[in-house]
């Protein structure tokens, strides 16, 4: 994959993320807040974007979303082969639920 292709994939991922998030927020706000890990204010902002604002935001060539597991020990534990899939799935879900949501600073 060359650089141009990567940048275009990033824009695609950004747009897909924004469109999906908007749909989730409009359908069921509390569920979307939990699934996306964002605060109510961030959710309201995302869903209030106009189409052209959404396109502009998505056109960024850096990723809009961030990896939610930022601890290498935990990540190692969750992806460890020895664990049954129930355990790693449950563990990841519990850890994500224990994290604070993304908020405006």
């Amino acid at each position: 994959m060359n650089t141009d292709e990567i940048l275009s994939e990033i824009r695609d991922a950004n747009l897909q993320y924004l469109l999906l998030a908007q749909q989730m927020i409009r359908q069921d706000l509390p569920t979307a807040i939990y699934r996306l890990g964002i605060s109510e204010k961030v959710a309201q902002l995302i869903s209030s974007l106009t189409t052209s604002q959404t396109m502009k935001l998505a056109a960024n060539v850096t990723m809009l979303t961030r990896f939610r597991f930022d601890d290498s020990t935990i990540l190692g534990m969750l992806t460890h082969d020895n664990k049954e899939s129930f355990q790693s799935k449950a563990h990841a879900a519990i850890l994500l639920a224990s994290q604070p949501v993304e908020e405006f600073a």
Partner: peptide, 20 residues
């Protein structure tokens, strides 16, 4: 305990971040 803790985690996140 694993199942209850997951439920509780979801509950607390919704409690803090939604009007429910």
């Amino acid at each position: 305990n694993i199942h209850s803790s997951l439920f509780l985690g979801i509950y607390k996140q919704l409690e803090q971040n939604t009007p429910l």
